[in-house]
Simulated assay, not measured.
Amino acid sequence: MQRQGFIVGTAAIRIRVTGGLLLAAYLALVAWFTLRPLDVPWVMPANLRPFDGIRAGFALGWVEGLRRVGEGLALLAPLGVLLPLAGGRLVVSRLGSLIRTMAATALVSLAVEMLQTAVPGQVVDVDSLLLNTVGAGLAHAAVVPAGRTRLCRRAMPGSVTAVFPEEPAQGRTPTIARVGIAPWSDALPPSSP
């Protein structure tokens, strides 16, 4: 039985479980990589202005700027694929899926940035949040629609109803007769003579 575009059957369970496990493992790796204390002699101040860190990287040279942008884009890019995989939805709006994935990635990135405030040697950078979100969006746009299309073609060679049969009719929705308002004589306590 299909509900709102979710994959059905044992394959669906395997896909969701695999996606969930890969997502958990990747988030653990990201936490280890971004939240471990660094041994540095001094720390740069936090960057709370959008694009200042990117400009500073390119001020050091094109190679350094591209390296920093590439790192920012790549850090949470796998979430663009792992989040929809763990969700298990096969038939969804492409734009809606992209927006949900980017919003979830932005929240994960924000959580990482906020947790970094308590870690020695790590600095909050708003550009990281922007680049992480864009990277996940790019990975999602590049992989997920094509993967869903392939899964749909593979799962539904004949027709949609062959794999996702419509739900059986449940019959008419029961209705309840309207209850009228009792006359005042029924609502008042009986008067004694």
Rank of each mutant, 00 (worst) to 15 (best):
M114A: 14
P174G: 08
V17Y: 03
A86Q: 05
L115H: 00
P37N: 15
L73V: 05
G65W: 05
R100N: 09
P189A: 01
V30R: 00
S185F: 09
D39M: 03
P168W: 08
W62F: 13
L107N: 10
L66S: 10
V123E: 03
A104R: 06
S93V: 12
P168N: 12
G57E: 08
W184P: 06
V134Q: 03
A25I: 01
T117A: 13
A111N: 11
I176P: 01
T173H: 04
T105Q: 07
N132Y: 02
V81L: 02
Q122W: 11
L60D: 11
P193R: 07
G9A: 03
L48F: 14
L79E: 01
S192F: 12
L75M: 12
G135E: 02
P193D: 13
R55H: 14
L29K: 06
Y26S: 02
N132T: 12
G72H: 01
A118C: 12
E167Q: 15
V91L: 06
G53M: 11
G53P: 02
Q170E: 13
R148V: 08
G65T: 09
L82R: 00
P157M: 09
L76C: 09
T101G: 04
A46G: 08
R89Y: 06
V119L: 06
Y26A: 00
A11D: 09
R94E: 07
L110E: 02
W42E: 06
A56F: 07
R49K: 07
S192W: 15
G180S: 14
A24K: 03
M1C: 12
S109I: 05
W62C: 09
W42P: 06
G5S: 11
A142E: 08
L85R: 04
W184R: 15
R68Q: 07
V40N: 15
W32C: 15
G20F: 01
S109Q: 02
P78W: 03
L188G: 13
V144M: 00
E113A: 05
V43T: 07
G87Y: 00
A146L: 08
R14D: 07
A111E: 05
G53N: 02
R36Y: 14
V108M: 15
R67K: 13
G61F: 13
R150E: 14
F33M: 12
L95H: 11
L138Y: 02
L22H: 02
T10R: 08
Q2E: 15
R14A: 08
R150H: 10
L151I: 11
T149H: 13
R148G: 03
G171A: 12
G180I: 10
R68Y: 04
P78E: 01
G53H: 03
I7A: 05
Q4D: 13
G70V: 06
C152T: 10
P189W: 05
S192E: 13
A155C: 15
M1H: 14
W62P: 09
A11Q: 10
V8T: 04
A118S: 14
L38Q: 13
R154N: 14
L66K: 13
R68W: 02
G61N: 07
D39G: 00
G5D: 03
L151H: 14
L82P: 00
Q2W: 10
D186A: 10
A141T: 04
M114G: 06
P50V: 13
G9T: 06
V92I: 15
V40P: 03
A31W: 10
D125H: 04
